[in-house]
Design a protein around this nucleic acid. Sequence first.
DNA 1: TGTACATATGAGCAGTTGTGCATATGTAAA
DNA 2: TTTACATATGCACAACTGCTCATATGTACA
Lengths: 117, 117
Amino acid sequence: MAATDKKISCNLTEGKAEELKKKLPVDEEIQDLAEFFKVFGDPTRIRILFLLKHGEYCVHDISNLVEMNQTAVSHQLKSLRQARLVKYRKDGKQVFYSLNDSHIDDILAIGLSHINE
Amino acid sequence: MAATDKKISCNLTEGKAEELKKKLPVDEEIQDLAEFFKVFGDPTRIRILFLLKHGEYCVHDISNLVEMNQTAVSHQLKSLRQARLVKYRKDGKQVFYSLNDSHIDDILAIGLSHINE
DNA sequence: TGTACATATGAGCAGTTGTGCATATGTAAA
DNA sequence: TTTACATATGCACAACTGCTCATATGTACA
């Protein structure tokens, strides 16, 4: 019995295991994916994203609409910016935020359809 | 000037603000969505999901393939089960896990396309 | 320049999360 | 029934997260 045919667990030979592992995304990709989804894993950020589906808003507006204080909103907008989910435009004293990724709608929609099943 | 026309921040009247808030999902839905996406926000769980795209595997196999000890994998499988992302089938001493939601592929694909942009 | 406003940032803290250890439960074979 | 194996669970702990407070930065206007 060749080395790669050795059973290493329930139904897996070493050969099959190695083959399978090659089909998985590399570590860095996995890590980036997790970081990306983590951004969707907070109610405040989700609320902001749903809000921005309806247009661009300044920080003060966002803060009012999601009923969170300005500092908390600013922190979350930073996360969203770093994940490249929102973009911003400065106009005088104000900063207007809007969605930056066409996929956001899709992801939120899939999420909704899952939880409503 | 009517009460609902009062400017409450940058470009928002009270009336517009109330209208907008009605368009956002209710709190419970927002909360559930966040919980759902949180599950995708961990590298180990993402790895397990990618693995299960290729078939059903017992806990021992999964543990081998994602190179994590059995206990950690069991804990994560519990999260995935609770989020209804995986289902399981008992066969003797073993428990075989597989994907439970057709949307998983879609979500992972969108995530990948975002991080590779 | 000074003042007021809009937004961002850093530190601190409470709450949460992922992992590993020890162990429990469940099943099959001896 | 005893033993070995497969999986699950409770607890403890370190690491991380999101919020708040205080404050910094930046801009406009008097």
